[in-house]
Amino acid sequence: MKKPAVILLTAAILVSGAAVYAANTLDGDSLISKSYITNTFLPDVEKQVSQRIEEKTEDTYQSALTDLNQKHSTYLALAGGEQSYASSFTDLRFKKGDVVTLTAGSGGMLLAGSASLSYTGGAVVDVTAGQTVASGGSLSQRHRYLAGENTTASITITSDTAVLDVEGYYSTMLSTSVDYNALADALFEMGLFQGSGTAYGSGYDLEVPSTRIMGVVMFLRLIGEEQAALSSTAVNPFADTPAWCDRYVAYAFEKGYTNGVGENAAGQLLFAPDRQISANEYMTLILRALGYTDSGTAPDFTWDTAVSKSVSYGVLTSGEQAMLSQSSFLRAQVVYLSYFSLNASMKNGGVLLDRTVASSGLGRSEFERIMSGVKVPRL
């Protein structure tokens, strides 16, 4: 816009100057030569015009910048912390008690877990349902929420973990709750945990229950024997397992890690792969890996006392036992037990990590490097 203005102003001055030049030439007494106008007068005028426009533009810019900075400072004060910006919906993982604050025009969509909504100012719109929502209610999964004008909306995570899509300006205030997400990240980096293929939240699916087959696969990875299972030629004795997990269950049965759930009317052995696994069932696998037995004439534990016996053996804390008794046993809890069991003492000496390293063939230093970066305290 600056260049056209310079041209117009210069043209106007040129016309005026030309008129003066013409008038004086007719009188035979030229006060201004053509070369002076071309080489001196016009360049100087253009320079002055450009300078004036620069000054006016700078004034306008500084005024707009000051206004934007004031608004930004207001948003920061309302949000209570430094803001981030997502140009399009971006999924992020959170834990219980985390608060995500959205400023006017920003949006959120809960993909997994649960969360509550509160706001001050105007309104929050459930774009999916086409209506405003009351402050203090719960978010509906896969509904897009938009903070209206002059509105500051806060989304508080109420489940152990959650996946939230955010768009626009937002800030976060993190809680001190158990960070299952960090534990999952560490296990993933160590190659001991994989996602379920879900397209959001790193595919972790920490918000859903774990099945018996998921538990066995996770367990075999944890003790470093997944590759041994996949290359196993053991016979699968179970009649109800899908083809993709055939090698896992055949190997686990041969090694005595799992016995199934009994027989059907036809006398076929069943595994119940899709049945939800319990904390006692998963801790049964962990205790077996640590060298404890639940069979014979003098067993160390039984499957239904695995959690309580784990406390006795120092594998679990009383706080972890309380957590397992008070909450649903989800993939988040499987991750928690798996991670902290790596440093659990074996019955005959050493820790489980020793077995994992020996079986997997991976370097211990790499495991320890990853674990040293995890700052999640035990319950």
Rank of each mutant, 00 (worst) to 15 (best):
T284L: 09
I37G: 08
D240L: 09
A234D: 13
D91T: 12
V235Y: 05
T57Q: 12
T57M: 12
K34A: 15
D300T: 04
L316Y: 01
L352G: 01
K2E: 05
M218R: 14
I286A: 02
V311G: 09
T90S: 08
S154A: 11
A23R: 06
A23Q: 06
W303T: 15
A115H: 04
Y61S: 07
S278Q: 05
M283G: 02
Y282L: 01
A112F: 01
V133T: 05
L362H: 04
F271Y: 10
E320F: 05
A322M: 06
L117A: 04
I53T: 02
L324P: 07
M283Q: 11
E189I: 14
D354G: 07
L285W: 02
L187C: 03
I7P: 00
A279G: 13
T161H: 15
L192M: 14
Y180A: 01
L117R: 07
G256F: 00
A134D: 11
N24I: 00
P242I: 04
G291N: 03
E82N: 15
S232D: 03
C245P: 03
G373P: 03
A265T: 13
G262Y: 11
G113E: 10
S175L: 11
G203S: 11
T128A: 04
G361E: 05
K347Y: 00
A147K: 06
N280C: 09
V178T: 15
D240F: 06
T302D: 08
L164R: 09
S345D: 14
L31H: 13
G363P: 00
T241A: 07
K95H: 13
L139W: 03
K2N: 04
A266L: 12
Q194W: 04
S84A: 13
G361C: 03
Y248T: 06
G373Y: 03
G350K: 01
T38G: 03
L316K: 02
M346F: 00
A18M: 08
V6K: 07
I223F: 05
D165S: 09
A234G: 00
E263T: 15
A289T: 01
T10L: 04
T10I: 00
A239R: 14
V235Q: 10
I223A: 02
L42K: 09
S140G: 08
A123M: 10
V124I: 05
Y336Q: 09
A11F: 00
V99C: 02
I370N: 02
S338G: 14
G122A: 11
A184H: 07
S231T: 10
V374S: 03
A279F: 10
G203C: 12
V125K: 10
K34Y: 13
V49N: 00
Y21A: 13
V6R: 08
M173Y: 12
V374M: 02
L379A: 12
